[in-house]
Nucleic acid binder design. Structure first.
Length: 185
DNA sequence: GCGACAG
DNA sequence: ATCTTGTCGC
């Protein structure tokens, strides 16, 4: 799942891409548009993006077995990032994969694919800072709904091939950005 | 009170 | 997120 916006900023566009695991080939995609009626406020991203995301999900012929969201899971001040919120609403296991940190602290991460260090807040582990690829910034992985941190990390790594972000996120982002690519096979 | 702050 | 300049590598 990923979200994009119109040039005038009045419309939110949500895109979802369903990939088979672990092959990672695209099975289905969907896009939805909704008026943007909520501003971007750190900690309240769900209220801005979920309406369009839910609409896009409903367009799928079959519901996914796992959701990877562009944002935090429980690595959130109230432990309810967009991945957690979405997973809860549709009752599907979900994972948050954010490009930057919202909250929590952590040590440096080894520069090796798969290396990770705990993201902590208030004495509890709320996620992992994961190196999906050597030589690039790490990503912030956190459980969203009905999944453990270890399992979440395993799925995220399983979705990362030659780029920093999971193929699921990249596909959805491309759709939201209107960048189409034909694939023959 | 001050700094931090997903997309 | 969006915008913009400069650099590196295939």
């Amino acid at each position: 799942m990923d979200v994009g916006f119109e040039a005038d900023g009045t419309v939110t566009r949500a895109a979802v891409a369903v990939l088979r695991y672990p092959e990672l080939d695209v099975l289905e995609t969907a896009i939805a548009h909704r008026p943007t009626e909520f501003p971007y406020i750190p900690g309240l991203l769900s209220f801005r993006e979920l309406p369009a995301v839910l609409e896009a999900l409903e367009k799928l012929r079959e519901p996914p077995d796992l959701l990877l969201c562009d944002g935090q899971g429980i690595a959130h001040p109230r432990r309810l990032g967009i991945a957690s919120h979405l997973g809860l609403l549709v009752d599907i296991p979900s994972i948050g994969v954010a490009k930057t940190r919202l909250c929590g602290r952590h040590d440096a991460v080894a520069n090796q694919r798969g290396a990770w260090t705990p993201l902590r807040a208030n004495g509890e582990v709320i996620g992992a800072v994961l190196r999906t690829r050597p030589g690039v910034r790490s990503v912030y992985v956190s459980p969203g709904h009905r999944i453990s941190l270890e399992t979440a990390i395993a799925y995220v790594m399983g979705c990362c091939t030659r780029y920093r972000l999971p193929e699921t996120t990249r596909r959805a982002h491309r759709l939201a950005s209107g960048q189409m690519v034909v694939s023959l096979g």
